[in-house]
């Protein structure tokens, strides 16, 4: 049983670590701000949560696991809120992406006025 938990924890750690590194690589590699937001999204979701699940498996059913669960829940809710706040601030400041394949922003502005 102990071995099984160790293997599961190892699985979550390695997968989480991989996603964290790929996300961080995306932060460096991707060409502009608007695409880098999505790399940051990878770090905030799978990367962080899988690491936390790996740690939860290490400590079993204790108060420590409950604390980790709280951290995970907070990151789950506050992470995208912060990302949206950054994207919205950049949008309001007039940060426009280059080479859009499709752009509905004018239609959106019109729909809000109506």
């Amino acid at each position: 049983m102990n071995l099984f938990i160790d293997i599961a924890s190892w699985f979550f750690f390695s997968l989480g670590g991989l996603v964290l590194i790929v996300g961080a690589l995306g932060m460096v590699r991707l060409p502009d701000f608007w695409s880098r937001i999505h790399a940051a999204g990878m770090i905030d979701t799978i990367g962080a949560e899988f690491m936390l699940v790996g740690m939860m498996l290490q400590s079993g059913l204790t108060l420590t696991t409950l604390k980790l669960l709280l951290i995970g829940l907070f990151i789950f809710i506050a992470g995208p809120t912060a990302t949206h706040a950054i994207a919205n601030a950049a949008w309001s400041a007039g940060e426009k992406p280059q080479g859009l394949a499709r752009d509905d922003s004018a239609r959106f502005a019109e729909g809000e006025k109506a």
């Binding site: 937001i37 999505h38 790399a39 999204g41 990878m42 905030d44 979701t45 789950f76 992470g79 995208p80 809120t81 990302t83 949206h84 994207a87 919205n88 949008w91 509905d104 922003s105 959106f108 729909g111 809000e112």
Partner: peptide, 17 residues
């Protein structure tokens, strides 16, 4: 926003950008 690949940029009454 939580799913990577899509980010909500602006919110409105009837639609999201």
């Amino acid at each position: 926003t939580l799913t990577p690949g899509t980010v909500t940029v602006e919110t409105g009454g009837k639609a999201l950008l």
